[in-house]
Every structure is written in C-alpha cells, then in structure tokens.
Computed example of a mutant assay.
Amino acid sequence: MFKKLALTASAIAFALSGCATTPGATTSVDAQTAQTMTSNGPALWRVSDEDTTVYLFGTVHVLPEGLDWLDPTVANALASSGQFVSEIDTSLVPEYDPTSGEAPPPELMAIAQMQAQMALLQTGGTLRDLMEEDDRAEYEAAMQSLGLPVNAFDQFEPWFAMISIGQVALMQSGFDPASGVERTLDRMIDGKERYAFETVEQQLGFFDGLPLESQLEFLDESVEGLPEGTDLLNAMIAEWMEGDADELAEILNDNIADAEIYDVLLSRRNANWAEWIEGRMDQPGTVFIAVGAGHLAGRNSVQDYLAARGFDAERVQY
C-alpha cells in the first residue's frame, strides 16, 4: 500500500536535507538509465486570465545525473515569470556533499537537529520493540544490507527510520539531490520574487503527525520495497519524462488506501495550494509554481481543486 509513497517521501526528505543525516557510500546510476529515458516533456499546465498567468510544473526531487529534462518551453515559462513558488524554499537549505569530508553547513545541522527532536520516540521502549517479530527481522536485515547498525534508529519514531533508510538507499544507488529539479530551478531564478507554500518543519510535521500504527506500516512496506526501490523510482522518472500524468498518478497516488495519509500528504495540501493560487489570480503578473509531480496528477490534484474554484488549467503543448 505504501511502498511507492514511502519511496517518494524519502526522496522529498533526501532533497530537502541535502543528505545531512545519511552516511553511506555512493555508487553510480547505470549511465544507460538516463540515456534511454525519452521525453515528450515533463508536464506543464497554465492557468490564466486577462492579466495573470500561473504555470504549474511537476517536479521530481531526485534524479540520476545527466538526465536532460529541461525543455525550452519550461525554461521560457520560468524566464517569463516574475515570481517563483515551490513547496519549500530550497535556497535556505544549502547543498552538501557528505563524502567531502567537510562539516555540514550550520543550516543543515539545524534541520537535522530539529528532525531528530521531532522524531524522538515517546513510548518508553525502542522502535524495534514496537515491531512484530517478522517485521523486526526484515528491518534488521535491511539495516545490515545498507551498512547501518540495527539499533541506529531505536530511539526514534518509525517515520524517521523510514525516511532515513530511504535516503541511504537512494544515495547508495547514485541518486543525487543536487541533480533534482528544484536545485536546477534554484540556479535559474536570480532576481525573481520567491515564495514557498510550506516550511521544512511543516513538511516533517506531516510525517510526525501520522498515527503510530500508520508509521509502522509505512516503515515495514518501505523496508520490503527496498530491493525494487531503484527500479520503481526510475519508472516514476520515466513517466514524468514522458509527461504522462495519468500513469504517474497510478504509480504515485492511486494505491494509497489509508484515507488519513492520503488527506495529510496529498489532498489537504493540494487544496491549500489551490486556495493560494485563487488569491494570486487577483494580482497581475506571471508566476511559475514547481511542486512534486504527484500533486499535479490524478484525483484531488491541484488542478481538480482549481476547477472547483472556477479555474481551468490547460496543458501547455511543447
């Protein structure tokens, strides 16, 4: 149920944390992976009236190095925009290479400390005490396969372990947050007004606020999905490169059976963002919004909530 969402959650946290909390050796993604991903162009939508244009662009938070995804139509839409909007302000999260031997920047240390404080387990025991015997055995085997001590996350809630394990697995598979879409766009927006829908603390809070049982299921399915994680992420990226929002929705969103998790991580946020866009349409100008591609795909997407408010998002053709 949660395997795909767990991988996506790890990718999100991987991108915003800059690997500050994820030790491990990196390896190279198969060079053919990027070369064989053909592109009709990642999907871009436009909402407009007589004096306002809002572009909606779905992103992938981590990518294999060398993937040529930036279509001229997207670049031109960004260049024409006076305001850039993203989920969080990634300019406040410095890039960091954990293999450099240098200490992480203070901003990343502050995020890591905040994350650890939020995730401290309050049950009186350890994380592994909360697991069923079979789940605990799978978890310990996964930790060992990644080169991590089995007790590394014993004092933390399941969501923290789930995200951290996913981060290590992504990094060891060669995925790099510096190659993610947000980081690339960051380098192209000098002089533009910037706005973020959420803060890092809010995003971590979405996971921290989930019921403990849901977190444990999240963690268990993330552990079970580790062997297929790279293939799954590559499949997501391939659909994104094709601009196939329907297939992307099926991969990312359609198997989330837990209504509360779906509401917290997807639909409630999409509704909030659509409300902001409605207000922004009252002001003239051009805005480029870049958010995770899953928020612009399938049911209860940002576009669905905009349509309910009387705004039609048209697909921009390349």
Rank of each mutant, 00 (worst) to 15 (best):
L7V: 05
S10R: 02
A25G: 15
V29N: 02
A34R: 01
Q35R: 12
S39Y: 00
P42I: 00
W45S: 07
V47M: 07
S48R: 13
T52D: 07
G66E: 05
D68W: 01
T73P: 04
A79C: 01
V85F: 02
V85H: 03
S86R: 07
I88Y: 02
T99C: 08
A103R: 11
L108H: 06
A119P: 03
L120S: 11
Q122E: 14
T126N: 08
L127P: 08
D129K: 01
E138H: 06
M143D: 10
S145F: 02
P149L: 06
N151R: 04
A152S: 10
E157W: 00
Q167N: 13
V168F: 00
L170A: 13
S173H: 15
S179Y: 09
E182I: 00
T184K: 08
K192Y: 02
K192R: 09
R194H: 13
L210V: 05
F218N: 05
S222H: 11
V223M: 02
E224D: 12
G225C: 04
P227T: 08
M236A: 13
W240A: 03
I251H: 01
D258G: 10
D258H: 03
N270L: 11
W273M: 15
A274H: 03
E275N: 10
G298A: 06
R299I: 14
N300D: 13
S301H: 01
S301T: 05
S301M: 07
A308H: 11
A308F: 11
D312F: 11
E314M: 12
